[in-house]
Simulated scan of single mutants.
Amino acid sequence: MEATTANGNLLTLNNVEVIYDGVALAIKGVSLAVPSGGMVALLGANGAGKSTTLKAISGLLKPERGEITRGELHFDGQDIERLMPQQRVRRGIVQVLEGRRVFEHLTPDENLVAASAVTGCNRAEVVRRRDRVYEYFPRLHQRRSSQAGFLSGGEQQMLAIGRALMTQPRLLMLDEPSLGLAPFLVAEIFQIVRRINQKEGLSVLLVEQNAMAALEVVSHGYLMENGRVVMHETAEAMKRNPDIQEFYLGGKEGRDFHQVKHYSRRKRWLS
């Protein structure tokens, strides 16, 4: 799974700009990098541009009438901007969309097998990949014969991640995986993703509103506001930053990440 780029980054975005419907500027000059084998968080409030950034990487902008109009997008040293989403999946890029989108009428077993079809692997390889998913997510193995629509929210999120793993990715992008889940489930899922990262060298780009949970498992974070990256630091430095503590980690004024959309106070990270 390891990339061979000279600078050690599997994914790089340089000054990327995205426009919807030819007029609405969604992200403005975004630059970020995901190291080979690294875990990076992309943080920000609703509407900051986080999901748009992921779709720019996975190639899912066009169905929503979005397009990259400026900047460079490289994966493993290659320009991927003109590749179709399916081609990006074959290169090793996979996005787990917000909302746990699984085939509810199928069992977890059937969901996993269906997800492997995009890579065209043989039956023996499908079984090997499926068993690997069950090793990481034993709950899914216990529920493998149930309809996915009857799984709990946490189990459906595990299945969504398991489906992504069936494509044998090199970069796993997770869009708000904690949404609607109890804190203990969030911690469990994030620790499993961290174990996959450490065991297999899988690079992870994690989009989250739950900054506290995200910063516990990643090495670095980017903070987005109004379509721009306004901060890039190590996870430890971000946790110590007083503005991050106040607005995103539940500071003394009681404001949290889900409530804040605009910041009226001076941003120390911009000074």
Results as ranks from 00 to 15, higher is better:
L25D: 09
L25K: 14
A26C: 06
I27E: 01
K28V: 06
K28F: 10
S31R: 00
L32S: 00
V34R: 00
V34Q: 01
S36H: 02
G37M: 07
G38E: 01
A41S: 15
L42P: 00
L42M: 05
N46D: 02
N46P: 09
A48P: 10
G49N: 10
K50F: 04
S51E: 02
A56W: 04
I57D: 00
L61T: 10
G66H: 10
G66L: 11
E67W: 04
I68K: 04
E72L: 14
H74E: 05
F75N: 04
G77R: 05
E81P: 00
L83A: 07
M84P: 02
P85W: 14
R88C: 09
V89F: 03
R91L: 15
Q95A: 10
E98Y: 05
F103D: 03
F103V: 14
H105E: 14
T107W: 08
D109C: 05
N111C: 03
A114I: 03
S116A: 15
A117C: 13
T119F: 05
T119E: 10
R123G: 06
R123F: 12
A124F: 01
R132F: 10
R132V: 02
R132P: 03
Y134A: 03
E135Y: 09
Y136A: 09
F137I: 12
P138C: 08
R139F: 13
H141A: 15
H141D: 05
Q142W: 02
S146G: 04
Q147A: 13
Q147Y: 07
A148S: 15
G149A: 09
G149H: 14
L151T: 08
S152Y: 04
G153E: 02
G154W: 06
